[in-house]
C-alpha cells in the first residue's frame, strides 16, 4: 500500500479518500525531510523526490509517495532521499529561491498533482 507525504492541498483533496495522505503546510525541503524521517522508520521510497523538471527553488510544492508498511531500513531509499535533499538545498539555499507572483501558485500545484497522477494511472 502507498502513503503520500505532501504540502500540496490538491494532492490531499484528490487522494486522501483512497490512500493515506499526510498533508503539512510546510516548505518544499521540509517535505523531503519528513520523507527522510519516514525512511529511517522503515518506510520505502516509491516515487522520486525530485520528480519533474521544475527546479526546487522555483516551485513551493512537493509530493512524494512512500510505502505504507514499515520494514527494515531501505538503504537505497535513504541514499536517494539524502541526495535529493542535498540537491534541493543547493537550489534553494545556494542559488536562491525564485519568488513567483500572481496565480503561479495554483499552476505549480497542478503540475505537482500531475506528476503524482502519473504514478497512479
Amino acid at each position: 500500500m502507498k502513503k503520500i507525504i505532501t504540502n500540496n492541498i490538491l494532492v490531499n483533496n484528490k487522494y486522501s479518500k483512497y490512500y493515506e495522505v499526510e498533508y503539512f503546510d510546510i516548505d518544499y525541503i521540509e517535505v523531503l525531510k519528513k520523507v527522510r524521517d519516514c525512511i529511517h522508520m522503515g518506510h520505502k521510497l516509491l516515487s522520486h523526490p525530485l520528480s519533474g523538471s521544475v527546479k526546487p527553488n522555483e516551485t513551493p510544492y512537493k509530493s512524494v509517495i512512500i510505502s505504507k508498511e514499515k520494514e527494515e531500513l531501505d538503504i537505497n531509499s535513504l541514499m536517494v532521499i539524502e541526495e535529493s535533499i542535498q540537491t534541493a538545498d543547493k537550489f534553494i539555499n545556494k542559488i536562491g529561491r525564485v519568488n513567483f507572483k500572481d496565480k503561479v501558485d495554483e499552476d505549480f500545484q497542478i503540475v505537482d498533482l500531475s506528476l503524482i497522477d502519473g504514478c497512479f494511472k
Partner: peptide, 19 residues
C-alpha cells in the same frame, strides 16, 4: 525520453512514453 506528466511528456508513434 522525458515522461513524467503535464508538460514533461514525449510521444512515440502517438503513444505517451511513460506508458
Amino acid at each position: 525520453l522525458q515522461s513524467q506528466g503535464l508538460m514533461h511528456d514525449t510521444y512515440i508513434y502517438g503513444v505517451d512514453a511513460k506508458k
